[in-house]
Amino acid sequence: MALLELDGVTAGYTAVDALNGISLRVEDGEIVTLLGANGAGKTTTLRTISGLMKPRSGSIRFMGQEIAGASANAIVRLGLSHVPEGRRIFPGLTVRENILLGSSNRGRVPRAELDRDLEAAFGIFPDILKFADSPGWTLSGGQQQMVAVARGLMARPKLLMLDEPSLGLAPIIVQQVFRTIADIRARGTTVLLVEQNAHMALSIADRGYVLETGRLIVEGPPATLLDNEEVRAAYLGGRVTAE
C-alpha cells in the first residue's frame, strides 16, 4: 500500500489553480518530486492534498485512509505535514516559538519531549540556533526556509511535503537545503517535493512527476526524466511549439 495515493483528482476553477485529473503515489521512504512550469498546478496539488483546497472529484488516500475533503487540521494530525511556498514564518513569534508550534498537531506532548524535539531540530539546522530568540521576520530567506522545514518536522510527519524550498535562495544555500532534505529522508521521513529547480530536485529524488497545465505528463526515475524532451522543456519553464 502506498503511503499517499491520488486518483483522478480535479480541483480549482481558473487555469492557474486547476487540476485536471491527477493520479500519483508516494511509497513509504521515498523522495518524490513534482516538477513543472509556473502555473502548472504543483502548488495546487499540495494544497489539495493538505486540505487547504477541496478537490472537486477523485480520491486522496493517506495510509489507506480517504482524506479528500477533510480539513487541513485533521490531515496534519494524521502525520502529513505541508511546508508551503514562501515559508510563512509567523513574523511576530520567535524562531523557537515558530518551531515549537509545529507540534500543534500532536495533541498534549510533555514539555521534556518537546524540548528534545526542538533540540533535534536545531541539530539538523545548527545555523538557526543563534537566532532562536529573534522574531521570525528578522531572518533572511534562507534562514526562514530552515525554520519552516524545522517547524514541519516538529509535526513528526510520516510524509513531509515541501513547496519550492529553494525559492529565492542563493545557489549555495539551495545546495544546503537539498542536502538536508536527503538527510531527513535518511532519518525515515518520506518527502514529496515540489520544485522549479528540476536539476537539484532530481539529484536527490527516487522518482519524479512532471505537471503541465494541471495534468501529469510524465513519470519516472530521475535518469528517465532527465532524458525526456518534455522535462527538459518544462524545466526551462514550459514549451513553445515550433513554428
Binding site: N38, G39, T213, T241
Partner: peptide
Amino acid sequence: DEPAAGLNPTEKQDLV
C-alpha cells in the same frame, strides 16, 4: 510581468 505564466502551449504561441 510574466505574460506567459499559466498559459498552455497554444496560448503561448499566440502570445509570441
